[in-house]
Simulated assay, not measured.
Amino acid sequence: MTNRFDLNEGASRLGSFLRDRRQRLDPAALGFGGRRRTPGLRREEVAQRANISATWYTWLEQGRGGAPSPRVLDSLAKALMMTEAEREHLFLVAIGRPPKAHVAGRGGISWRLQRFLDAMPTIPATVATSTWDIVGWNRAAQLALTNYEQLPPDERNILRRMFLDPATRAAQVDWEEVARFLVATFRTESTRAGENHRAADLIAELSAKSEDFARMWIENDVHTTGEGAKTIRHAEVGEISFEFSSFAIDGRPDLKMMIYNPAGDRDLEKIRLLCSLDQVDCNQSDFET
């Protein structure tokens, strides 16, 4: 049986949620003065911050304002200083669907997530944005995949490297399959993220510089990152096969973590050999040091 969004119930829950979040804010901290009989901002102050009518905002809290648009919901989330989890809840109770993910910048990841990556000394792992910018990695990924640390931030983009860097292309045992997968997941995730200047610029650049990308892009294939298998040619240890899986990062819908598990014992030994060549102890992770 299909679940249907109940507008009346949603309006009631929306009003309650807005009222609760409004009453939690500190007026003085937000530049509002005056004596108050109740905690939090006044309704007209929230409306002012969200650039909407005070009357309409009052109706929303009373459960009779009608379904607001995603743009208005985003304005309310900012006006009420909501966290990403609160913003998602706001959309779900108001219109029955989650918001489009905020697009990540390329400023890195939290130290806790980095410690998690480093706790896998023989399993390459990366964190990427919806446009395939690599913003986090562990040492195994540096040794087996790409030494991202030596690259400028703008060159840590997997799509750009796959289509414009001959060495990256030559390292793929089945370049066509890998490239199609990247383009299809890029289309899916950039569409999910909504309007994104980074994605638009990347599409324009790659379409102009790579006939292969332009050919694949107009085919309109879509794919989720999910899981799969790939084999690369490594300059020092030869072919390495991986089974990869993608994981969402809670609280950061704009990011995905990719885990590349060595497919067999021989592949694992090659990772360990790379560690030894780099004088890294693969039996001890950075997490433990």
Rank of each mutant, 00 (worst) to 15 (best):
P27I: 11
N8E: 14
L90C: 06
D26P: 00
P27C: 11
V93F: 01
M216P: 03
T2K: 14
V280Q: 09
T188S: 11
D133T: 06
P68S: 06
M82Y: 04
V178A: 13
P99L: 03
L18W: 14
D212K: 08
G194H: 06
A77I: 07
Q284I: 13
A229Y: 09
L273A: 13
L273S: 09
F247Y: 11
R37Q: 07
D20T: 12
R161Y: 02
E84G: 05
M216A: 11
R87V: 04
S190T: 15
I158R: 01
D281S: 06
L30V: 12
W56M: 08
T289S: 09
L202Y: 10
K100D: 09
C275G: 05
S110W: 10
A141W: 00
E227A: 14
R233N: 06
L14H: 01
R187K: 09
A125Y: 00
Q114W: 08
A54T: 15
D278V: 00
Q142V: 09
D286F: 06
L145M: 14
R112P: 05
T146N: 04
R4Y: 13
S285E: 02
P166I: 04
R87Y: 06
G33V: 09
D118R: 02
L159R: 09
E177P: 03
V135M: 00
P39R: 10
T225Q: 09
D212L: 09
R272I: 12
L182K: 02
T224F: 05
I123Y: 03
L159C: 07
L113C: 11
L113S: 04
C282Y: 14
A248E: 15
L143I: 01
A119Q: 14
L80R: 12
N196G: 06
A235Q: 10
G10D: 01
I259K: 10
W56P: 07
V237P: 08
L80E: 07
E189T: 15
E9C: 02
E177N: 13
V103L: 05
G226A: 14
R21W: 08
H234Y: 01
A50Y: 02
L113G: 03
L159V: 11
L274I: 02
M120Q: 14
E288F: 08
Q279V: 01
W217Y: 04
I158E: 08
D133V: 05
K78F: 14
A101D: 13
I218L: 12
V222L: 14
N196A: 09
W137N: 05
H89C: 05
E176S: 12
I134E: 08
D154K: 13
E86G: 10
F5V: 09
G136A: 11
R64T: 00
E189W: 15
F91P: 05
R49H: 10
L255M: 05
T83P: 04
A104E: 13
S245M: 07
E176H: 11
P166S: 01
K270N: 07
S207Q: 11
L255P: 02
A199Q: 01
A119V: 10
M82T: 06
A94M: 06
D20V: 09
F186G: 02
I123H: 01
E149A: 11
A208D: 14
A229M: 11
V72E: 12
P99V: 09
A101Y: 10
L151I: 07
C282L: 03
A167Q: 13
V237S: 03
A28Y: 08
L117C: 13
T188G: 03
P153W: 02
